[in-house]
């Protein structure tokens, strides 16, 4: 089974995010960049599927040169090949443009499956997965927390949580699956894996290599414009409920939840 995983490099979830002077971007000077955690689930699922059915895992990312570290990490986890779409003209592209470039890179390849995270933990938009599937004209299964292939490897049954219930969906291949937390526990990029990854192929492609027109990319071509970034408001102080007995406190809590918070 040939599997593709689309990766995004995002700021470490522990990184302190500061809004830049233009109020439209973040300060990237001291940021440690990591693989989007949802994409890590995708890499792990791809590797597990390959271990069962054989085939090859190719990882694709888009972004500046530093994204090679994220692709190399996936190769160290066990993926076979990497592709980085690296082009100054793509800087500042919106999600649709990114999806268009990823789809163009995937189009000529033989594949049965595409995994990608249900969203990037930076912008939290969740648009790329669906858009790639749309550009490639293949079905899309989103927010998946369980993947099971038919014995012959020709179809897939997946589970998606819906309001406390579970929806089971079946699809033919090829298909694009966006991964949700709970799907698996991603393996580490082991040290021997990191040494092996140094020798694995990692191709760099420009937009014109993919037959794309640079004017459809970058800041100027954005359909989605960022107007302003704001920090979340500071958390207000909590409320301590007073009372003589647990019963009294519980009654007061119920009253507040009903009257003030309007949750009950």
């Amino acid at each position: 089974m040939n599997i593709i995983v689309c990766l995004k490099q995002v700021p470490d979830t522990e990184a302190q995010i500061k809004i830049a002077g233009d109020a439209k971007s973040i300060v990237t000077d001291d940021i440690k960049w990591v693989m989007n955690p949802y994409d890590e689930f995708g890499v792990e699922e791809a590797l597990k599927t390959k271990e069962k059915f054989g085939g090859e895992v190719t990882v694709i990312g888009l972004g500046p040169k530093r994204v090679t570290e994220t692709i190399r990490t996936a190769l160290a986890m066990g993926a076979d090949k990497g592709i980085l779409i690296c082009d100054d003209a793509a800087d500042g592209s919106d999600s649709i443009a990114v999806a268009k470039a990823l789809a163009a890179a995937i189009k000529g390849m033989e594949y049965d499956l595409i995994f990608t995270g249900q969203r990037g933990v930076d912008d939290d938009l969740g648009v790329v997965g669906a858009s790639v599937a749309e550009f490639l004209d293949i079905p899309q299964l989103s927010l998946i927390e369980d993947v099971e292939f038919a014995e012959d490897g020709k179809s897939v049954k997946v589970k998606r949580p819906v309001e406390g219930e579970v929806l089971t969906i079946e699809s033919s291949l090829p298909v694009l699956i966006t991964t949700q937390k709970g799907l698996n526990e991603p393996r580490y990029a082991s040290l021997p894996g990191i040494m092996k990854a140094k020798k694995k192929p990692l191709d760099q492609k420009t937009l014109s290599d993919l037959g794309l027109d640079a004017s459809d990319f970058g800041e100027g071509a954005r359909k989605l414009k960022i107007v302003e970034l704001l920090s979340p408001p500071a958390r207000s102080a909590g409320k301590i409920i007073e009372g003589e007995s647990p019963q009294e406190k519980a009654a007061e809590l119920a009253r507040l939840l009903h009257e003030e918070a309007k949750l009950l």
Binding site: V34, T68, E69, R72, T73, A76, Y188, A189, S190, L191, I194, M195, A197, K198
Partner: peptide, 15 residues
């Protein structure tokens, strides 16, 4: 080098 940075990340996560 990139591979050393990836090792640092692996060990950091393991810790």
């Amino acid at each position: 080098p990139e591979d050393v940075e990836i090792m640092r990340t692996t060990i950091k996560k393991f810790v």
